[in-house]
């Protein structure tokens, strides 16, 4: 068995072990624990308040900016990985390239900041 496959087989084995562990524990809890379902218990937990409406309510759209910010910087990380691997080989040239790349993205972040799109309300 080559080394490469073995190392990822361990990852897969961890997935399987975690799945079995959780299934076993939850199954055990289901077998042992007494279950008396009442209306009060089944109600959505709302920190002691009476829940109003359903759990699924429409979010205000300005949260979308946070999702998109996450995506933008996630994609940036994708580019950072190969850059970090070749950091020494690329030298100053690579550094300047990456600084330009990040600077353009930081303009977007600054714009979001100035437009008060980062405020959490």
């Amino acid at each position: 068995m080559p080394d490469y496959n073995l190392s990822y087989f361990y990852v897969f084995a961890f997935f399987v072990a975690a799945a079995i562990f959780i299934t076993l524990l939850l199954g055990l809890a289901r077998l042992i624990a007494p279950r008396k379902v009442t209306v009060e218990k089944a109600r959505t937990y709302e920190s002691g308040e009476e829940p109003v409406g359903q759990a699924w309510s429409r979010y205000p759209t300005h949260f979308y900016v946070f999702a998109l910010l996450f995506v933008v910087f996630d994609v940036e990380v994708i580019f950072l990985f190969p850059w970090a691997v070749l950091f020494r080989t690329l030298g100053w040239y690579g550094l300047v390239e990456m600084v330009i790349f990040i600077a353009i993205l930081v303009v977007g972040l600054y714009y979001a900041w100035r437009k008060k799109a980062l405020n959490w309300y």
Partner: peptide, 19 residues
Amino acid sequence: FEVASVLLLAALVGAIVLV
């Protein structure tokens, strides 16, 4: 590669403007 960052910037600014 550098143009990709401009694309990401455009997506971000567009979302902010719409929102």
